[in-house]
Amino acid sequence: MKTLKLFVAVALVALTPACFVARNNINTPLDPDRLALLVPGTSTADDVLGALGAPSDVVQLGRRSAWRYDHSQKKSAALSLLIVTMVNTDAQADRVWVFFDEADVLTHMAGTFEAQGARYKLPFQD
C-alpha cells in the first residue's frame, strides 16, 4: 500500500505542472465587410484609410504603392511528461493588400482571412 501511495504521489507531482496553452494576437482582426466597401478604379487612398485605418506596412512599387493590413493569431499547446516534451504552435493570419496607382486610386486589392482557423492541438493531432 505504501508503494502504491508513493507511485500515485510521484505521478501527480510529475503530471500536474505538465501542460500549458497560450494564445498570442497581433493587431485586431480584419473585417471582410470593411474591405467590401472599397471599389477598385474608384476608391482612393483616403477611402481606404477611412475603411481600414492605418496600414501595417507600405511598399513603394515605382510610382505605385501597396499597403498591407494584417492580424495574426498564434495558439500554442504543450505537454511535458518527465523526459518527453510535446509542443505545437499554430499561427494563422488575416491579411489584406491594397494597391494604388500614382494618383492614389485603388487598382487592386486582395484579402485572406484565416486567423480564426488557428487551433490548440498537440503534434500528433491533425
Binding site: L6, V10, A14, L82, I83, T85, V87, T89, Q92, P123
Partner: peptide, 24 residues
Amino acid sequence: SRGALCCALLAACVQVSWERHELG
C-alpha cells in the same frame, strides 16, 4: 514508481522533444 523516479531524475540531463510549428 522506480521507473518514474528514474525518469524524473534523468529529466535533468535527458530530454526528448517532439515539436510541430505551423504558420499559414
